[in-house]
Write a protein that binds this DNA or RNA. Structure first.
Lengths: 144, 144
DNA sequence: TTGCAATAGTTAGCAAAGCAATTATTAAAA
DNA sequence: TTTTAATAATTGCTTTGCTAACTATTGCAA
């Protein structure tokens, strides 16, 4: 019954530490970027010209959240919106030069953080972690 | 490099689904309680008379968050604050009758949800999940 | 005993998550 | 073609997380 042993608690706890570590590392690199902004920024970096809906799906966030994160990224001059040529409801998202520079500066930091988290975790344990996380995700599938 | 394969992404995704499922299940039971409120409510249920600092540590949240969650629980009439007898800076937190009723109503739902999440996950995989989550947590220990 | 640091809790400000409702545009149906 | 439904994005509202600043109380030390 002890709440400290329940896996949701352990997940929450690990996630929070991870986010704090990210924020701390980003700040140390002189960059005022949240972990969530990083996710969206990187998606735009990888797939230039994506619409917000596509970003929403890739980032597994909801539309309003993505709108606001992009608002912030635009304010910081890292990305810009361009009205869709075919479908004028859509925006296409592109990186600015500053945005690319930030990604290139952050990428190794993100990689190092990710590695730090699984330091001394065996490859097989990591595989099981991912498998179970995916399983938990599908176990709560909508419509059940 | 695919972000969908990175463990932080999988954790985030699983957590979000879990929270949604909780909220949905609580609402279906006719209870307007968030997952976060449940955590605090249950801690007060288990340890009657705890101070907010103690709750803060047990819930692994920060002080302002706990203050507000307790504010909400008080508004809903589920718990109440009582000024500390020895140390007048502290509050002691206690359940109301309604609070106890809510916990007793929610407890089986929470248990079922927790079980649903790890449906078809072997005991050994679950053990590894917990071990790795703890490892990630300590790998990001402050002061490193 | 006075003065100062530590502790408990709160308030304020910003970012983010979730949900409902709204606008603008496009697609489908009567 | 006109109406209706679906889609893309936004706005508003509430809750939470995090940081910093603040008040009140307690504990310790000069």
């Amino acid at each position: 019954m002890e709440i400290e042993q329940a896996y949701p608690y352990l997940m929450e706890r690990a996630m929070r530490r991870m986010r704090q570590a990210s924020h701390h590392a980003f700040a140390e690199a002189g960059l005022d970027i949240t972990a969530e902004q990083w996710v969206v920024l990187y998606i735009i970096f990888e797939g230039n010209g994506l619409s917000q809906v596509e970003i929403t799906e890739l980032a597994f966030k909801d539309a309003p959240t993505v709108t606001r994160i992009i608002d912030n990224l635009v304010k910081k001059g890292l990305v810009y919106r361009q009205m869709g040529t075919e479908d004028r409801r859509k925006f296409e998202l592109y990186m600015t030069k500053e945005g690319r520079e930030v990604v290139e500066k952050l990428l190794p930091i993100v990689m190092a953080l990710r590695q730090q988290g699984i330091n001394d975790v065996s490859a097989s344990d990591l595989r099981i972690l991912k498998k179970v996380l995916n399983r938990i995700y599908t176990n709560f599938d909508i419509g059940e």
